[in-house]
Nucleic acid binder design. Structure first.
Lengths: 254, 254
DNA sequence: TGAAAATTGTGGAAATTCCAACAATTGCAT
DNA sequence: ATGCAATTGTTGGAATTTCCACAATTTTCA
């Protein structure tokens, strides 16, 4: 049965929520499958961003709930905040704002909550909704869809259909990789929603820190001609910068 | 020098806060010491409870504070869990399940994630979505709408319109008050969504602990004839029990 | 200073994991 | 039914880790 693989996957995740790490050999014995199968399961779940491998096993990827993540992100927190401020400056005249998901998007959401009012924010990210929600002068609209655990956001057909029926002044999106071809996300489901968002907004702002430069291990969700502004925290590589210019993308280095 | 060991220990912990796992060989190379030394460092830090070993490396021990937080959410946790278990028993044959918001609903969501599969859960609560989302065999559909900060859930016209277009086998709702007139919620926006949910499900299960009995400071969102089952943790007052009987509401005391 | 204690390095055998290629099996569609 | 694609098992060799005993070095303190 094809179902068995998915069952194993959830069992792995379940085991991982009860222990800080699991081992290939242990799970293979426990599930009655070969170690290679577990190894392959790990590969898939790694691609999905749900766990990360160790030698001989795997550990849960730290989601936002975990303390360590906050610490890890705090390394880039200052950069993200600078990026977020510049981004919000750029869209300060918006009345309807689409915001994607990701750590940078959350910082943008915080800035929006702190500085804007009389505005409607539409998002598919739980974290963004919660961050903007603290300001009662900002209306937050949640996009429907299938819940995506790795990113705590909604995806899929419902999300895309919902987006078709609305208009926004700006869309602000993060990226897990930015190449000369365009910005991308590691998860195809998220990339699809991003694409749909872009089609509904008059202008598009991409916000990503320098660590994303030339990271292509991701699904591209837009081409540069569709992007109005790219906000980052350091000068991009020459070729990328050239591509931006030739596509008339406004570059903001915060 | 004795200092070097402690330095290494802090460096190990630092490295561990920047990555989800570290490897013996890697650290040995990085610190310029033998792998045995790193191994012994790991042993000590493990005894101190600061990390836990994996084959070939180590990971940070999960912060028990985080787990405790959700548990500490209420003294009524045990009761809520009993109620949740009985509730899930009641809807175990469902293929599409609507779940409302609130602390009890979250416990139900946990039970669903732990025990059911091949099912679709539709909800407007962030917490419920996150709780069910850990099980990848359960599809979680998020309802759109205006974000309601107090309950971390969606409300309003978009939510209600969205609900009109779907069908569910069961709807499970909490309540902030349960009177002879019916279950109610303290927030009108939530009550409206609850009402809409009820109209789309074949059967309705209300789950509420005894502290909600005869609490009428709320907006009633349903009449008893619409309710199939009422799950609670103690025998309700005589009059309420009588009302349930006369409306053929199945009473479950967990 | 000198000896005990703590710390670290070394070396080799045993156990474990990884990887890649290939075979067997299962589910699904034409 | 037949063929294709996806999933899983198997195998063997290379690479890595572990474990243990013992030696070398440094620290402590009497």
């Amino acid at each position: 049965m094809r179902q068995e693989k998915r069952e194993r996957h959830t069992k792995i995740l379940t085991a991982l929520s009860g222990a800080s790490s699991v081992r290939v050999a242990e799970l293979a014995r426990q599930f009655g499958v070969s170690t290679e199968t577990i190894r392959r399961d790990f590969d898939e779940l790694t691609r999905g961003g749900q766990l990360s491998r160790t030698y001989g096993g795997a550990v849960r990827t730290l989601d936002s709930r975990h303390h360590g993540e906050a610490e890890r992100q705090s390394i880039l927190l200052a950069e993200r905040q600078r990026i977020a401020k510049a981004t919000v400056d750029e869209v300060a005249d918006a009345r309807i704002l689409l915001i994607g998901c990701g750590a940078t998007a959350v910082q943008v959401a915080r800035q929006v909550a702190a500085r804007l009012k009389d505005i409607t924010v539409v998002t598919h990210s739980f974290a963004v909704a919660a961050a903007v929600g603290v300001n009662h002068l900002v209306e937050v609209m949640m996009i429907p869809g299938l819940y995506h655990p790795a990113k705590a956001s909604t995806t899929g057909g419902h999300a895309i259909v919902f987006l078709q029926s609305l208009y926004a002044d700006y869309v602000i999106l993060g990226a897990s990789g930015v190449t000369q071809d365009g910005p991308g996300d590691s998860l195809p489901e998220i990339a699809a929603v991003n694409t749909a968002m872009m089609s509904r907004a008059a202008r598009c702002v991409i916000a990503a820190d320098q660590s994303k430069f030339n990271l292509s291990s991701s699904t591209r969700y837009a081409d540069w001609p569709q992007v109005s502004t790219f906000v980052t925290d350091a000068a991009p590589p020459a070729e990328l910068q050239k591509t931006l210019e030739s596509n008339r993308v406004k570059l903001l280095v915060a």
